[in-house]
């Protein structure tokens, strides 16, 4: 049935093309020498990138985003790693319920999470700021960290920790000398991915932002000005490339972890 296989493969290619096409248009028009996002194309230019770079507020938003996302990456990776380690024991009582509860944020609509946290912030008198954004992001990204680290810990030979203790180490040094080095590639992966997710996150950020903007909010604010659209596109291209790079890096690091660990 080779012809059917070709049709099937062809459909897959079409699917991938359809996935990338809208994004491809963003990239095309970021380099288009016209303020109108329309065909026909007017010629190649990179001026929108310099326009974007000189926009007021952009640099601040960028710095804020980096601050928030890097702290979120670290915190959620730590929480997620420790939780995944605990959850990797199949015999843990109540494990399915715990796993469900800890990954719940992935299933709750962002808007519901956002307003719930907003209400709590108001109730305890917490002023909205980058801090509240960071907290919301940690809630959302920790499940990602858990889901990345869990398979790594589950494939972990339990005897390795027992061997370490047998050879004289207590719980702490066993963690430092055995568990951590072997989990390291997963941890790096988790850091990179939670950073990316936090960087791009919009809905929670919208509800929990104070006066300081982050990048997604900045983009949102620029969307209502048609003249600024190409600049926004240029910014999008930069973010796209950066996210793409981070995700590929995360995957590469994850692969690094594999051959040395026959798991």
């Amino acid at each position: 049935m080779s012809r059917k296989s070709y049709l099937w493969a062809g459909y897959t290619v079409l699917y991938i093309a359809a996935l990338y096409a809208p994004v491809a248009f963003l990239v095309i028009f970021a380099f288009n020498d016209s303020t109108a996002i329309a065909f026909p194309l007017s010629g190649f230019t990179t001026r929108w990138f310099s326009v974007m770079a000189n926009s007021p507020g952009l640099i601040d938003a960028l710095v804020n985003s980096l601050k928030v996302s890097s702290s979120v990456a670290v915190i959620s990776t730590v929480l997620g790693t420790v939780a995944a380690k605990a959850l990797s024991r199949a015999a843990l009582p109540g494990r399915p319920a715990l796993l469900g509860m800890l990954t719940l944020p992935l299933l709750i609509p962002g808007i519901v999470m956002g307003i719930a946290l907003l209400i709590v912030a108001g109730a305890i008198g917490l002023r909205l700021s980058l801090f509240t954004i960071a907290i919301a992001h940690v809630v959302y990204t920790t499940p990602f960290a858990i889901l990345i680290m869990l398979p790594r810990f589950e494939g972990f030979d339990r005897n390795l920790e027992e061997a370490s203790r047998d050879l004289g180490e207590g719980l702490f040094f066993t963690f430092i000398r055995v568990v951590l080095p072997l989990a390291a590639p997963g941890i790096v992966s988790s850091l990179l991915l939670t950073f990316t997710v936090s960087l791009d996150e919009f809905v929670l950020t919208f509800f929990l932002a104070g006066n300081e903007t982050t990048l997604p909010l900045y983009i949102w604010s620029q969307l209502r000005f048609p003249g600024k659209l190409p600049g926004v596109l240029a910014l999008s291209v930069c973010i796209l490339c950066f996210s793409f790079f981070l995700v590929t890096l995360a995957e590469w690091v994850r692969r690094l972890g594999s051959p040395a660990n026959p798991q």
Partner: peptide
């Protein structure tokens, strides 16, 4: 870690790193 015993595991448990 506080016993005068040591174990050779069935899976060997050699530290891969």
């Amino acid at each position: 870690n506080r016993r005068p015993t040591n174990m050779v595991f069935q899976s060997y448990a050699i530290f891969p790193h």
